[in-house]
Design a protein around this nucleic acid. Structure first.
Lengths: 129, 129
DNA sequence: AAATTAGTTAGCCGAAGGGCTAATAATTAT
DNA sequence: ATAATTATTAGCCCTTCGGCTAACTAATTT
């Protein structure tokens, strides 16, 4: 019956924990064994393993065991999936701002320049077209 | 003693819940009252209010009450903060890929073209410079 | 003034989260 | 063969999460 979580649920809740974010950051720099990953943390191994497991379940991390050592690597696609969510939201947000701006313009025209000009910072961000 | 969560912790765990993501998405299209926001959800109001509260605590949403109605709006800066985290990770990841590619090139040169050419998809994404 | 609407507070409940220890495998080193 | 290393399983514990109901406050409507 396991109430299936959406992929985004899993990814975001995986990233909600600082230990796990640190692991992801570490893995961005290249693959590593469980032991290597665990080293910087003052935490019992089994606790740490749970984090690894959460990351794997979310699809953010993949791992494979050879001999007695398990090597973990980042699966960038999952990260990208979450990043896309933000871009999607930003797109909606910016479209709305544009509409709002157009609306203000219309008002302005109708009132023929009686309104004061506010800062109007139209979110000039890197990605912004 | 409240174990202070980092801002990112709060934002990601806020976004880990589908109800809250839906609220954020809705608010990207413009502000709304608590009642309007709650309408699409089959959930008792107090439960819903908890979600609003989580979103406010995380900084993703702001609200103000006038008369008996509370109006909520998105605070885009918080969203952007989380988005930046991904871009940061991607930057590290891509830098690493570049280094790796350079390393492979070097090997190739040393071996004088004995290695097979693999696909080598250098993550050609929108933002990628 | 009475009734409705819109939120809010308090408190209960079961499930999930994040930590621990102890015990067990399974590989590799001596 | 023994010992050391590396990971894994099982299970306990307490806190947080996400839902609920019931009761209450404050603003509008009628």
């Amino acid at each position: 019956m396991a109430n299936q979580l959406s992929r985004l649920d899993q990814i975001f809740s995986a990233l909600a924990d600082p230990t796990r974010r640190a692991i992801v950051m570490r893995l961005c720099a290249g693959e590593a064994s469980v032991g290597e990953l665990a080293d910087p943390f003052e935490m019992a191994l089994p606790s740490f393993m749970k984090h690894i497991h959460v990351l794997e379940t979310s699809g953010l991390v993949q791992s494979e065991k050879s001999g007695r050592v398990r090597t973990c690597r980042l699966s960038p696609d999952a990260l990208v999936g979450a990043e896309d969510w933000f871009q999607q939201q930003r797109a909606t947000w910016e479209a709305r701002l544009d509409r709002f701006e157009a609306y203000v313009m219309k008002l302005k025209k109708e009132k023929e320049g009686a309104t004061a000009k506010r800062p109007s910072r139209t979110s000039k961000r890197k990605g912004a077209k």
